[in-house]
Structure formats: C-alpha cells, structure tokens
C-alpha cells in the first residue's frame, strides 16, 4: 500500500493509504481527544470531539473518519478547535443527566476525564433533565439511559466484536435510545450472550456490572483490543 506524507501540527508524518488522520496522529505520538472512537471497531464520527482543521478546507473535519491524503496539512490544536470541543462536551453534559458524584464510573469515565483535560469548569447551556429510566432486568448488567451519550460504541462492539447484534440505536434526535432486540428489557433479550463486551466498551457509566457502586466501574478495554487483534491478525499477545 502506498504511503502518504502529510504534516500534523507541523510535524512531517508518513502514513499508510487508507489510514485515518486519527491513526496517523496517534502513531506519531499526537493525541486528539476522542469519545466515540474505540480501538477495534470501525469509526462512525458520531461525537465530533476529534475535530481537526485541514488547510484549504473551511469546515472542521472529524479525525477518526477523515482519511490521510498526500500533502495534507492538519492542525489538531487551535483556539477555534478548543472552543468547539468545549462546546460539544458541554452539550453532551446538558443533554442527559450526568451526576458524576453518584455515578458508577466516577473517576473512570471518559466523558469526565475529557471535561477535566479540556478545562471544562461549567456548562453554559440549560440542562435538559430528561426522564430516562434505568434497565436492571439483566442478570449481570445494568443500563442507565441517563448517562448514555449515544456514542454507539456498545452497538458496534456487540455487533462486530461479539457478533450478537443485541444492541442498536432506536428513534432519532433527542429521543434516540440504545435498545436490546425489539426494545424489550435487556434481561428478556434472546440474542444477548451475556459476554459483557458492551459494558467494557462504554465510555461513561451508562453500562455497568451489577453490584458496582459509586466509582467502582473500572473497565478493561484492553480486553476488547486483545480479542480484535487475535481475530484479525491471529496474534495472541496478552
């Protein structure tokens, strides 16, 4: 495969054709904030946190779904980008009910971590306070819709890593919701294999193992990567 040369934040980089800007950047040791991206499953560009500037293109592009191109000049950090990222994060917080202090993921949440690292100290938008329930019908796991940011990582993981296809997004707009099978309680799902991969994939406290209390939900995402590498590359390096 042909290599493409581009610059990211002024740094000369060569990346494989077909690679995303996000991949190229991370190989070069440049970190771009992400939320819906998950190693091992394909990208959908849902969260807009990984926005970058590309010289010659007026609009911002998501790094995870933008492919590298010859001579591309990418910038991953600017006043404008920081502004947009903060705004996106604040909107995510305002959309549902994120009360970190009482969340199972407190301290291990990617949303919370990003908010800290991007210096988000308050939310300028009115909170929606929607009424979402918690599904605790599953024997082993629970789903708190209040904490869901609709990144669809669980959907992609359940479909493409586990292969069960139990989870999907139903509805649209602010009424969108993660469902199991035909929107029945998770515990009544016939396709769920109880593998727990969706729980591992979730960046927030929306999916959790039963019995975890505040701050206890630490997940092992390396396991997901391990499985994907084993399957795709036939390499079992733990």
């Amino acid at each position: 495969m042909a290599a493409k040369t581009l610059t990211i934040d002024g740094k000369q980089i060569s990346a494989e054709e077909g690679a995303s800007v996000l991949q190229a950047a991370s190989e070069a040791g440049i970190t771009i904030p992400t939320l819906c991206h998950l190693e091992g499953v394909y990208d959908v560009g849902a969260c807009r946190l990984c926005l970058i500037e590309v010289k010659g293109i007026p609009k911002l592009l998501p790094a995870c779904t933008t492919k590298v191109a010859e001579g591309m000049e990418v910038s991953t950090d600017s006043e404008r980008l920081r502004k947009y990222r903060r705004m996106t994060l604040e909107l995510l917080f305002a959309e549902r009910n994120h009360v970190c202090a009482v969340c199972v993921a407190n301290g291990h949440c990617e949303l919370q971590t990003l908010a800290y690292s991007l210096g988000m100290d308050h939310v300028r938008y009115d909170y929606n306070f929607p009424k979402w329930g918690v599904d605790t019908t599953h024997r082993l796991f629970g789903m708190d819709h209040n904490r869901c940011i609709l990144c669809a990582r669980c959907v992609r993981t359940c479909w493409h890593v586990e292969g069960a296809g139990t989870k999907n997004v139903a509805g649209r707009g602010s009424k969108s919701k993660i469902i199991s099978d035909l929107n029945q309680p998770w515990g009544h799902s016939e396709s769920c294999t109880e593998c727990g991969k969706c729980v591992m994939s979730c960046p927030t406290g929306a999916l959790f193992r039963k019995g975890s209390t505040v701050g206890e939900s630490e997940r092992d995402r390396t396991k997901l990567e391990f499985i994907v590498t084993a399957r795709e590359k036939k390499q079992w390096n733990a």
Binding site: A164, G165, T166, N168, V169, G171, D181, N183, S191
Partner: peptide, 12 residues
C-alpha cells in the same frame, strides 16, 4: 439481520 437493527431503522 439482528432484530435490534430492524427495530432501529423502523423507529428512525
């Protein structure tokens, strides 16, 4: 197709 997929599209 997974039922969840059919349901997802039908409600979109």
């Amino acid at each position: 197709l997974p039922p969840s997929r059919v349901y997802g599209v039908a409600t979109f």
